[in-house]
Simulated scan of single mutants.
Amino acid sequence: MKIADLDIPGNVLLAPMANVTNLPFRLMCRRYGASITYSEMISADAVIYENQKTLVRGKSCEDERPLGIQIFGNSPEVMTKAALRIEEMYRPEIIDINFGCPARLLTKDGCGSALLRTPELIYEIVSSLSEELSTPVTAKIRILEDMEKTLEIAHLIESAGAAALTVHGRTRQQQYAGKANHDHVRRIKQELGIPVIANGDIFDELSAERVLEYTECDGIMIGRAAMGNPFLFKRISHYLETGEILEYRECDQRIADLSEYFRLLEEFDLMHTVHIKAQAQWFTRGMRNGRHIRRSIAASESIEEILWNLDEMCKHAD
Rank of each mutant, 00 (worst) to 15 (best):
residue 51 N to F: 09
residue 292 H to D: 15
residue 27 L to K: 07
residue 213 E to M: 09
residue 85 R to F: 12
residue 287 M to T: 05
residue 227 M to I: 15
residue 169 G to C: 01
residue 193 G to M: 01
residue 165 L to G: 01
residue 277 K to Q: 13
residue 213 E to S: 15
residue 85 R to G: 07
residue 106 L to I: 11
residue 167 V to C: 06
residue 194 I to E: 05
residue 25 F to H: 07
residue 74 N to Y: 04
residue 147 M to N: 02
residue 46 A to T: 05
residue 276 I to T: 14
residue 218 D to T: 08
residue 43 S to G: 05
residue 263 R to W: 04
residue 178 G to N: 12
residue 32 Y to R: 10
residue 242 T to F: 11
residue 29 C to S: 13
residue 277 K to W: 11
residue 306 I to N: 03
residue 232 L to C: 10
residue 135 T to K: 02
residue 281 Q to S: 13
residue 211 V to Q: 01
residue 230 P to W: 03
residue 215 T to S: 08
residue 238 H to K: 12
residue 155 H to Y: 08
residue 23 L to K: 09
residue 243 G to N: 13
residue 235 R to C: 04
residue 308 W to T: 12
residue 68 G to M: 01
residue 130 S to N: 09
residue 300 S to A: 15
residue 6 L to Q: 03
residue 293 I to Y: 06
residue 254 R to P: 03
residue 56 V to E: 11
residue 202 I to T: 00
residue 5 D to S: 13
residue 188 I to G: 00
residue 226 A to S: 15
residue 159 S to W: 10
residue 269 D to F: 11
residue 176 Y to T: 01
residue 49 Y to P: 01
residue 53 K to R: 14
residue 262 F to Y: 13
residue 60 S to D: 10
residue 70 Q to V: 10
residue 122 I to R: 04
residue 166 T to Q: 03
residue 193 G to R: 11
residue 314 C to A: 15
residue 151 L to R: 07
residue 190 Q to M: 14
residue 309 N to A: 12
residue 14 L to Y: 00
residue 156 L to M: 15
residue 206 L to P: 07
residue 222 I to S: 04
residue 78 V to L: 12
residue 83 A to N: 04
residue 51 N to G: 14
residue 147 M to D: 02
residue 140 K to A: 02
residue 205 E to D: 14
residue 3 I to Y: 06
residue 104 R to M: 14
residue 281 Q to V: 14
residue 223 G to M: 04
residue 178 G to C: 07
residue 127 S to W: 02
residue 308 W to N: 13
residue 235 R to M: 09
residue 150 T to E: 08
residue 67 L to S: 00
residue 51 N to V: 09
residue 161 G to C: 09
residue 93 E to L: 04
residue 13 L to D: 08
residue 271 M to Q: 14
